[in-house]
Amino acid sequence: FDIYVVTADYLPLGAEQDAITLREGQYVEVLDAAHPLRWLVRTKPTKSSPSRQGWVSPAYLDRRL
């Protein structure tokens, strides 16, 4: 999967189903980028939180090589 970094805090609107909150600087794996406005991502697990999966706007993501 492609690795992206979150460029700004992402707080989903209440109406968005299956969306997750992301923090600036967080790394995520993009699982599904087929839709231009919503990408399915999975967060990297940390010592304090397990990995999470949900939909985010790709405008908040920047690809890492």
Rank of each mutant, 00 (worst) to 15 (best):
Y10K: 03
S48W: 13
D62P: 01
P58Y: 02
R23V: 11
S49Q: 14
R38V: 06
L65F: 14
A15C: 09
S48C: 09
L61V: 03
L40E: 04
E24L: 12
T7H: 04
K44L: 15
A34S: 15
V5T: 05
P36E: 09
V30K: 01
K44R: 14
W55Y: 11
Q53S: 10
H35G: 10
L37P: 04
P50W: 04
G25M: 02
P12I: 09
T46E: 10
L11F: 15
Y10Q: 03
L13Q: 13
E29D: 07
D62N: 09
D9Y: 04
A15G: 15
E16N: 09
F1P: 10
L37H: 14
T43V: 09
G54E: 04
S48T: 13
T21H: 13
S48H: 14
K47Y: 11
R52A: 10
V5Y: 12
A19N: 10
W55E: 01
Y4L: 03
Y10I: 08
D2I: 11
S57V: 05
V30R: 01
S51L: 06
L13F: 11
D32M: 06
Y4V: 03
K44F: 15
A34T: 15
A34N: 13
Q26D: 15
R52K: 13
Y60R: 02
T21I: 13
S51M: 10
Y60N: 07
Y4M: 06
P12Y: 07
V30A: 02
P36G: 06
D32S: 09
I3Y: 10
K47E: 14
S49C: 09
D32P: 00
T7C: 06
I3L: 11
G14L: 13
E24V: 15
Y10C: 05
A59E: 13
H35F: 07
L11A: 11
Y4W: 14
A15H: 15
L22Q: 01
R42P: 00
H35N: 15
A19W: 15
D2Y: 14
L31D: 01
Y10P: 02
L65D: 14
Y10R: 03
K44T: 13
V6F: 02
A33E: 05
W39E: 00
K47T: 12
L31P: 00
D62T: 14
W39D: 01
V28G: 00
F1V: 09
P36C: 05
A34F: 09
G14N: 13
P45E: 11
V30D: 00
V6G: 00
D62F: 08
V5F: 07
L40W: 11
P36R: 04
F1C: 08
L31A: 01
A59L: 14
T46K: 06
R52D: 06
A33L: 05
E16Q: 09
S57Y: 04
T43Q: 02
R64S: 13
P50F: 05
L31F: 02
E24S: 12
R38E: 04
I20D: 03
L61M: 02
S51Q: 09
S51W: 07
D32H: 07
T7I: 15
L13A: 13
R38F: 08
D62Y: 09
E29C: 06
L13H: 13
A59F: 10
T7A: 06
Y60E: 02
S49Y: 10
R64H: 15
V30Q: 01
L37W: 10
P12K: 06
R64K: 13
D2L: 13
Q17A: 13
I3W: 15
Q17E: 14
A59Y: 08
G25P: 01
P36S: 07
